[in-house]
Amino acid sequence: MQVAGFSPIPAALAGLIVWAAHFGLIYGANAVACARGLAGGRWLGLPLVPALVLGLTALALLAVAVIGLRAWQRLEGGLSGQEGENEPRFMVWLTLAIALLSALAILWEALPVLLVPACA
């Protein structure tokens, strides 16, 4: 799978990239909603900002779950015995660990939306 000379680092960082995108999007969405007076707004009967943030959080969690699951399968599957040839086992393990950490960070940063009033 890995082309020679192609760094495996982006795969390991995939979880962090999802986390950063989620953070930027919910921070931006909340700030724009507060600045434009949309914080109390509703969309299809749901409170706008919490619904948007929860939607983005579900998407982000799904993405890190896919990343983590694929890494898990590679750890469990055909990787053993090929260490050093294709993808070092350590990098796959790192991908999985970072995906778990990112999932936790995504949950933690979505929590204030549910517990603290917006724009306070």
Partner: peptide, 20 residues
């Protein structure tokens, strides 16, 4: 650490919400 920090986060956000 995950349990302790999660519990603290929820508690702190509860205090912040009550102060508002």
């Amino acid at each position: 650490p995950v349990l302790v920090l999660s519990a603290l986060l929820v508690h702190t956000l509860g205090v912040a919400a009550a102060l508002g």
